[in-house]
């Protein structure tokens, strides 16, 4: 498996330079009245869609920025147009 990611600072670089930060799952839930189950659901549960998903990546061997990108796990490739689909 090998592909490239587009760092907003450095441009397209090999995936080896990045660490994966998981799917975008929204900000941390408010902790007031947060049930353990809801917390763990947010923390651990993942959908595994075979379609483009928003992901976090960290340019560890580069500039050190966390960024979001939309990538299709079916092809491993980033999806053009940065993903929101409504632009």
């Amino acid at each position: 498996m090998t592909f490239r990611l587009t760092c907003p600072v450095c441009g397209k670089r090999d995936v080896y330079e990045f660490t994966f930060g998981g799917q975008e799952r929204g900000p941390r839930p408010e902790q007031e009245e947060l049930s353990a189950e809801d917390h763990f659901r947010w923390m651990q549960f993942r959908m595994i869609p075979c379609e483009p998903q928003e992901e976090w990546w960290y340019h560890a061997q580069g500039c050190g920025v966390w960024f979001r990108t939309t990538r299709d796990p079916g092809t491993n490739l980033e999806v053009e147009g940065d993903g929101d689909g409504d632009e």
Partner: peptide, 10 residues
């Protein structure tokens, strides 16, 4: 640094 930035990314 990665840890701080990750947990404050939003």
């Amino acid at each position: 640094v990665e840890w701080f930035r990750f947990h404050t990314r939003h």
